[in-house]
């Protein structure tokens, strides 16, 4: 039986997202072609939540997209092929500020794959990274620009992010096996 600890409840998650949205709004100019792209699957809902709050702050809609990085992973030969989810980028990324969004930042390899995948769609002016949870253990020189919560973890632990759209509630838990 795995032992689980809640590290963010619904309220804490909402506060973290609100703060991240304000930081995004502060460090970028309103209307300056900012778009949010969620990395499949966990980053998609985080991107939508952030976009909603940033849109309210700026009083104009921030476009969002989704990006599947399965075809760009560097560990394809080591595992069974990952399931594919839709990549939907309904705008031109050229000369935009793209904020890549993921739920958990861990080794950094997903982010690296996302940077490669995004490259196939054009040349953004700038790419920033927003993550709800940074759990450490980076294997690549990658650092997030916007972080909801830093959570020190051990490698044997699993960080699980749940969303009310898919599960019963918003929460982040650590599972010890």
């Amino acid at each position: 039986m795995p032992q689980t600890t809640i590290i963010m409840n619904a309220g804490a998650m909402q506060r973290a997202l609100t703060r991240m949205a304000h930081e995004i709004a502060e460090s970028n100019e309103s209307g300056a072609d900012v778009v949010l792209i969620g990395i499949q699957r966990g980053g998609v809902l985080v991107a939508q939540r952030l976009a909603k709050i940033v849109s309210e702050i700026w009083k104009n809609a921030v476009p969002t997209g989704t990006l599947d990085v399965g075809m760009h992973r560097d560990d394809l030969a080591a595992h069974a092929a990952p399931p594919m989810h839709p990549t939907v980028i309904p705008f031109d990324v050229a000369d935009k500020t793209v904020i890549l969004v993921d739920d958990v930042l861990f080794s950094g390899r997903t982010t690296r794959a996302a940077l490669d995948a995004l490259n196939d769609f054009g040349r953004p002016k700038r790419i920033q990274l927003a993550v709800l949870v940074d759990r450490g253990h980076r294997e690549l020189p990658i650092k997030a620009d916007f972080v909801g919560k830093n959570v020190p973890t051990s490698l044997s632990e699993k960080v699980i992010v749940r969303f009310r759209e898919e599960d019963e509630t918003d929460e982040v838990v650590i599972e010890k096996t």
Binding site: H72, F121, G122
Partner: peptide, 8 residues
């Protein structure tokens, strides 16, 4: 896509 190639 404009670039039809992936590195899989």
């Amino acid at each position: 896509r404009a670039i039809k190639k992936v590195p899989a």
